[in-house]
Design a protein around this nucleic acid. Sequence first.
DNA 1: GTTAAATAAATTGCGCACAATATAGTTGCA
DNA 2: TGCAACTATATTGTGCGCAATTTATTTAAC
Lengths: 147, 147
Amino acid sequence: MKAEEALRFHNQVCFPLYAAANAVVRAYRPLLQDLDLTYLQYMTLMLLWEHKQMSVKALGQQMSLDSGTLTPLLKRLESKGLVSRARDTEDERVRLIAVTPAGMALRNKAKNIPGQLACSLGVDAAQAETIKHTCEQLLAVLADEQA
Amino acid sequence: MKAEEALRFHNQVCFPLYAAANAVVRAYRPLLQDLDLTYLQYMTLMLLWEHKQMSVKALGQQMSLDSGTLTPLLKRLESKGLVSRARDTEDERVRLIAVTPAGMALRNKAKNIPGQLACSLGVDAAQAETIKHTCEQLLAVLADEQA
DNA sequence: GTTAAATAAATTGCGCACAATATAGTTGCA
DNA sequence: TGCAACTATATTGTGCGCAATTTATTTAAC
């Protein structure tokens, strides 16, 4: 592609990705309002529902986020009573984030959210799998380059 | 899919999209550092390089953003001398954002950015087209629902 | 011509993202 | 044992993203 063409807005490959990611967060917002959670808080809890307890680092690796984002987010979840933030007695540098009973209880209220969102997306199962796979691949390549 | 499975972190379709969008912004950052631009500022200028002059509303429609995001961003571009922000004399409600000569000059320095980024992405042309098309479709559906 | 409804942009407040830096704790090794 | 290198998290500052609200202007109905 000519340099001229490559600088045209509508030829950008990644901007639709960027805009779609924002649109997804917008689509989740009304569904999560009942739970008083943001999208990122919801995704964090989803990890903790499965693992019960994780370090900040482990959360960051799963979500491709650093402590600058996670520390304040986890403090907000703590202030809502959904997680605890204890130091690991084995290694005092590590914060172990654990889901509380109240946080675990939210899982039931969240059960119908994936279904509701799937309806909004307007993509079929095959397209959903393509999005997921392509983005995971993109992510893997870009994550690799940082290292 | 069972409700149980649908709440598993690794079965989420949209989170890779979200994380990939962040990763793209990260990948652009070092390339844009020379131009002293953020990713969103770069995309905004790209529109203005093509259209010379646009209202805040028109920019917002192209980028799926509202004035709460654009107004401060455009003020930052103005303070760098890259755009002007005049009121439309035909309709005083409208702000006409125009690219300045200095803003136009940046286009030359940006010419090699698309090529550099394409190398980082690690996806072939066909995959790039799939990402673009799928995200545009997703965006169209979600934008439609807001209306 | 007034005025009510509609429209465009700006403002406010909160929650991400993340670079850069700081702090505290651990490990390895001379 | 002492201490340098490393690691995990926290802090600070800037820039989005967007809901909710406000301000200014235009349009349309009467």
